[in-house]
Design a protein around this nucleic acid. Structure first.
Length: 464
RNA sequence: GCGGCUGUAGUUCAACGGUAGAACGCUCCCCUGUCACGGGAGAGGUAGUGGGAUCAACACCCAUCAGCCGCGCCA
């Protein structure tokens, strides 16, 4: 649009004619004069239509909230008695000389000029595109973008390369349940959507990139919670030639740089570190909130801490051992021997480090097993046969025979972090198009049945 | 899979075993300084769905569906 200026910049054009575009926010019809607020992505401003502008007045009488307008007008300083101090454009208003209706709008199903958190969420999700117009949702989604942008900038400044890994990949029976995708070219066979880019990023280390990151989607088919969805985004990082300290220090620097530039205050620097054992003893959990009640009232305080020295394995119902965090992790250096010999299993500690913030897990990672015998030993402890090991991770064991550097990394949950930044209690409030707890998509109508033709192509027969 | 809560007008809620009200929104009228403008008039719901006990239910019971919260699950 030619000559359009943003509403936040109106005050810089006092006395001049400008063009703005946006939505009608609130309309106040005084009879002979009409006021209405215009809203664009940068803010709001009052528009005023005065009596002697007959043609404009005719249009002004017609317009309704949420209509989309292009407006030409003169930016005036408000009369002293009408100045609204402290708010955007509180000192100026736009005297409208022309209104072009770009689009009309039906009356909205709910009020978006106020916080929509009190509105039935089913309705909000059915009309998510309207909900997103509300100030709080705009703020949340924009803050998410800002966070990701700053993380990218930081990592690029540290010589990282952003690399995408496949979405269609191999199913891994251990861990969480996979979302699967049928293969048309290989009937009866299925891809799985990644629960994490774990194996690919380790292969990228094997591939010599040394410093990789990705803003990666991860999918898990497990029941939903207030802070958990089917899909989430993680800042996925992996580095070669590193030990625990290297990764933790880099991530600590990254989070500090990023969140401080976003206006937050970090309670304690450097981040305190405590062992898993201490965490359980002190807080009864492996994540905790170190803020005082007073600090919790201030939305801008982030209390980070590292938790380390997690047990590598735990016993499950059938008496077998399974990993607590990540089977690809390395034990702490002094416990490598135990793992390889398969002894003292319950005492083996892993190099896992979790970043905790305000009661949520901000991220977690580890140094990885980069020698085939160590990774293999982990699977042996878990009771896998040689053949099963080959089936599961044969490709990794093979890759690791070709000079893989020692490496480690971390994944930071974007939504969990945003919940801390925004003070939201629900993951759905920081996702543009979240699902219901029953797995129904916002606005659109998934999941739904496939047509017979599609099923046939995929070689799928439904059973009752 | 389990447990709990919820489902009444467009939205947020209320009342009541005898066929529903308010606020906001919406429509129309009045108003030259409003800014969640104000004033007046009006339209709009048969109660998620199905069944049952009752002379009679939105209200009680059962089932079912949907949503939310938690548990299980979530390397």
């Amino acid at each position: 649009m030619k000559n359009r200026i943003y509403i936040k910049d109106l005050k810089d054009h006092v006395g001049k004619e400008v063009t703005i575009a946006g939505w009608v926010d609130v309309r106040r019809d005084q009879g002979k004069m009409v006021f209405f607020d215009m809203r664009d992505m940068t803010g709001k401003a009052q528009a005023i239509v005065i009596p002697n502008r007959k043609e404009v007045m005719e249009v002004a009488k017609e317009i309704r909230p949420e209509w989309v307008l292009k407006i030409i007008g003169i930016v005036n300083k408000r009369p002293d008695k009408n100045v609204k101090a402290g708010i955007l454009n509180g000192e100026v208003e736009l005297e409208v000389t022309n209104i072009e209706i770009l689009n009309k709008s039906e009356t909205l199903p709910f009020d978006i000029t106020n916080d929509t958190s009190g509105i039935n969420e089913e309705t909000r999700l059915a009309y998510r595109y309207l909900d997103l117009r509300s100030e709080r949702m705009q703020k949340n989604i924009r803050m998410r973008s800002e966070f990701v942008k700053k993380v990218r900038e930081f990592l690029f400044s540290k010589m990282f390369t952003e690399i995408e890994t496949p979405l269609l990949t191999e199913s891994t029976p251990e861990g969480s349940r996979d979302f699967v995708v049928p293969s048309r070219l290989n009937p009866g066979n299925f891809y799985a959507l990644p629960q994490s880019p774990q194996q690919y990023k380790q292969l990228l280390m094997t591939g010599g990139f040394e410093k990789y990151f990705q803003i990666a989607r991860a999918l898990r088919d497990e029941d939903l919670r207030a802070d958990r969805g089917f899909e989430h985004t993680q800042v996925d990082v992996e580095m070669s030639f590193v030990e625990m300290e290297d990764v933790m220090n880099l991530i600590e620097e990254m989070m500090t740089t990023v969140v401080e530039s976003m206006g937050f205050t970090i309670k304690q620097k450097p981040f305190p570190r405590i062992t898993h054992k201490e965490s359980i003893e002190k807080y009864g959990a492996d994540k905790f909130d170190m803020r005082t009640e007073e600090e919790k009232k201030n939305k801008n305080i982030l209390a980070y801490a590292w938790v380390v020295n997690f047990p590598f394995f735990e016993k499950i119902d059938n008496g077998k051992w399974t990993f607590t965090h990540n089977p690809f992790s390395m034990p702490i250096p002094e416990h490598v021997e135990w793992l390889i010999k398969g002894e003292n299993i319950k005492n083996i500690l892993t190099t896992q480090y979790d970043l905790v913030c305000n009661g949520y897990e901000s991220g977690g990672g580890s140094i990885r097993a980069h020698k085939p015998e160590i990774l293999k030993a982990t699977y042996k402890v878990m009771g896998y046969s040689e053949k099963e090991i080959e089936d599961r991770i044969g490709h990794m064991l093979k890759a690791f025979t070709y000079g893989v550097p020692p490496h480690g990394g971390i994944g930071l949950g974007v939504e969990r972090n945003l919940m801390n930044f925004t003070g939201e209690s629900y993951l759905r409030e920081v996702v543009a198009f979240p699902m219901t707890r029953g797995g129904k998509t916002a606005v659109m109508n998934a999941p739904k049945p496939l047509e017979e033709k599609q099923l046939k192509e995929l070689g799928i027969k439904l059973v009752k």
